[in-house]
């Protein structure tokens, strides 16, 4: 299981809080900040894409997250950067969804992914699209908990830290999210038969 510490290590964040790239970015070096964005762009854009459900909103959210990162460089500790980025990404996506709630019905939502593998059978591609759409039936908090736990691979305690909730609350949100997702997939599959 990937934890935040492991994610930070993969991203080059130094647990002891000293990071030459971060310090150079703090000093105003644009190349260092560009490098910092490259290190964390998969975390930020990937999470935003799963939470927002479409690429355009995910890119808008990612832009806002990196601008907030730039404004808060002086306050941030390299060891906590990944957790901070997850938290800000979740908050920015939630703010955007509250301002502009999705009007696309779940059953008519377009496929979220980029172009599929041509070797995949049509049935497999349809099944994956259905699973991606299943995230849209979840509440804001359930989706965030499921994305962070099951797709980003954080531990339940880390998810609780990112979302500012208790572990018990996160466990409840995760279990409800999994059950709702399973019901949606089952109902949709029956309808197609």
């Amino acid at each position: 299981m990937k934890t935040l510490a492991l994610a930070a290590a993969e991203l080059g964040d130094q647990p002891e809080g000293r990071d030459a790239t971060l310090e150079a970015a703090r000093a105003g070096d644009p190349a260092a900040f560009d490098l910092l964005m490259r290190r964390h762009e998969r975390l930020v854009l990937g999470t935003a894409y799963r939470l927002a459900g479409n690429l355009e909103d995910a890119q808008d959210a990612s832009q806002e997250v990196f601008l907030r990162l730039y404004r808060n460089l002086a306050k941030l500790d390299a060891g906590n950067l990944a957790a901070w980025l997850y938290r800000v990404t979740v908050n920015v996506c939630h703010d955007a969804q509250r301002r502009r709630p999705s009007t696309v019905p779940v059953d008519e939502a377009p496929e979220l992914a980029a172009a599929g593998d041509p070797q995949q059978t049509a049935g497999e591609a349809e099944r994956r699209a259905l699973l991606r759409r299943s995230l849209r039936v979840l509440s804001e908090k359930e989706r965030a908990a499921l994305v962070l736990r099951d797709l980003e691979g954080l531990s339940t305690a880390e998810v609780a830290g990112v979302l500012g909730s208790s572990v018990a609350t996160v466990r409840s949100q995760i279990s409800k999210a999994r059950l709702k997702m399973r019901d949606f997939v089952e109902r949709s599959s029956r309808r197609r038969l």
Binding site: D34, R38, E41, L45, L55, Q59, S62, R128, L131, R132
Partner: peptide, 24 residues
């Protein structure tokens, strides 16, 4: 397992580059 697999497909590099360009 299928959900993880469905979300494992990486986004195209130009999507990341677009975000960086907008921020810079």
């Amino acid at each position: 397992g299928e959900l993880r697999q469905a979300h494992r497909e990486p986004l195209a590099p130009e999507h990341y580059a677009a975000v960086r360009a907008r921020v810079l």
